[in-house]
Structure formats: C-alpha cells, structure tokens
Design a protein around this nucleic acid. Sequence first.
DNA 1: CGATCATTTCAGTATAGACAGAAATAAACG
DNA 2: CGTTTATTTCTGTCTATACTGAAATGATCG
Lengths: 176, 176
Amino acid sequence: MTLTPIQEKFILHWGEMGTRWGINRTVAQIHALLFIALKPLDAEEIAQTLSVARSNVSTSLKELQSWGIVRIVHVMGDRRDHFESMKDVWEMFEVVLTERKRREIDPTLAVLRDCVIEAEKAGPSEAHTKQRLSELLNFFETMSDWYEQVRRLPTQAMLKFVKLGGKVKKFFGFAG
Amino acid sequence: MTLTPIQEKFILHWGEMGTRWGINRTVAQIHALLFIALKPLDAEEIAQTLSVARSNVSTSLKELQSWGIVRIVHVMGDRRDHFESMKDVWEMFEVVLTERKRREIDPTLAVLRDCVIEAEKAGPSEAHTKQRLSELLNFFETMSDWYEQVRRLPTQAMLKFVKLGGKVKKFFGFAG
DNA sequence: CGATCATTTCAGTATAGACAGAAATAAACG
DNA sequence: CGTTTATTTCTGTCTATACTGAAATGATCG
C-alpha cells in the first residue's frame, strides 16, 4: 500500500497528536492508517507502508486491540491476520474515553478516597489537606458519574444533544 | 516544608497520572504540592520538598504558568517569587481543557480541513480518504463547538447540569 | 510429521525527554 | 555602583521508552 500525500499528512499528524496524549507515535500512526484503509491490512503491509519494524507493528497492534479500537479479521484463503480499525468515530471516542477513565480516573478516585479517609483519621493536623483533596475528589466523582450517564446514550441521542449547541445555555437556565 | 504521608501519597500519584497525560512528572508533582499548600511557596522550598533541582523547578513553574493554573505572588519583605496554584477545581479544569483544546484539537482541526480540501481537489482517487477524514473532521468540529458553548457557562450552572445525572437521558428523549 | 509461513518474544541499541549543576543574567539592596 | 540574592538559561548526563533484528514460538499446509 502506497500512501498519497494527503494520507501521509494525516497519518503523520495523528502520530504527532498521539505523543501529546501519552500515546506512542507508531501506535497512533498505525491507527490512522487502519482508519483510512480501504480494507483490513496485514502486519507486513503496515510495517512496509509506515517503514517500521515488523515486531514494532506487532506490539502496537496488541496495544490498539487492548484499547478495543482495532480488531483482527481473516481473509478467505489467507492465513495471515488482518487488522481493521473501528470506523464509527463517535463509537471510537466513546471506547477510548471509557478506557482512559478506567485506566486513569478510576485509580485516581481510589487514591483520593483513601487519602481523604486517612486525613479524616489523622485529625485537625490534616484538616486543610483533607479539605483540598475532598474538593478534588468531589470533582472527580461528579464528572465520573456524569460520564457514566451520558456514555450509555445511543450515539444518535448524544449527537442530537451536542448539536443543540447554543440551546445548552437556555436549558441550564431552565433546569437550574 | 515537610510532607505528611498523606500529602506524599497524593503528590506521587498526581505525578504518576501526569505522565499518562503527557505531562512531565515533576510538573505534575509541583502542581499537586502547590494545590495542597497552605500558602504560596518559593522555588527553593519546592525544590527541597520534592527533592528536585532548583533549575528543574524553575522550568516546571514556567510550564505551569503557561497553562495558567499557577501564578506568581509576592510576600511583603521578601524579594523571592512565591507561587500558588489555582484552588477552584472546576475553574482549574476548565483552564486546562481550554488550553489542551488550543494546543491539540485546534491544530488537528486545521490539518483535517486542509486534508479534506485537498482530497476534494484530487478527485475520485481520494474519495474514500475524503469520506473518512470528513467524518473525523465533523466529529472534531461538533465537539469543539459544543465545548465552546459549555465552557462559557458559569461554574454553578455547569455543576447543576452535571449533577442532573440520570435526568440527562430524559432530556435527550424530550429534545430529540 | 516435516516444511513453510506468520507472529510474538527477547535482548540489545538508539533516541527523546527529564534532570542536575554550572554559568549567566537579572533584580534589589546598602 | 558593587555586592548579594534570586532566577533563568545552557550544556552535558542520565533514564525511560521506542524500536530493531534475531531467535523462538506457534500455526497451517501438503
């Protein structure tokens, strides 16, 4: 598979963005490639197209599968694994957000709860720390609950909501 | 400033989380320290408390100031700079999200628009690429617009909204 | 069951980013 | 102004992670 200049531009940018989000550049590039690919690609094809080592592709694909946005498919008469990316953008971001929440927010919630409990036990000497961490915990819990609610919505409903745009403010005025 | 075990636990965890979000560990630790500090701290104090080089603290504080969540304050009769973190958690995250949007989403929007326009020019050969990137662009634009709307809401309104929790679904049913 | 092909694991290497310490700059004081 | 003190910049070092190529494992075929 040869990349057109446009495709290359997109893949390189996506890789760059990946690094900023704490995602390996190659992983992000492979994801970008699979996202725009016409059909599922095999690992060798990915390695050649992006000029990275075959083994590197293997590791990266594992990573993408662990995120749940890439899956293995098989082609009739070909024993190699082929890989394809989830194509529905909304669904894809829901999956990524949920996974990030699980990996990053949930552990933080646990630590904060722990700290607040211990600060409570420690008494007045930790009163200020307890106060600060409680506020942080409250924020995380609120956001976490909220996300659990909205993520369950079907894509269409979420889309409608977001598209409301300017009406959001009105709604708050009403609901508040 | 000596850290209690609770404070240390929180600071270390926050530093760890930082690395996952593409934020330097020391930067995140300093932010955590300032967040729970009773009063603004000077650079030397931060360096000693966290056992990092003075120069490293200097760079990290610049970074935190560029994010807009830490600022310099002065103490009467002391010529050293002192630093304090924003304390309102909601405001803090609004600032961070806005900055991330500016640094990461906006450039991506620009690249995607560019790619879609070029793909349009290129004709049928790029039809599929154009399709994929358009969907991605549409998603980013929708989310970007939505965020611009809600971020303007006063903290209180946003809080009420989030607290609605289960009612969100009802609302969508109604509005959709 | 051997041969071939595909995939993963592993060990060493390369590289980017974090960091320390020194040097340079800037600010405040007497 | 010179001196002291605070801050920043710079350069080299270190470390964590990405990455490669080779070896090992696993799967599918005749």
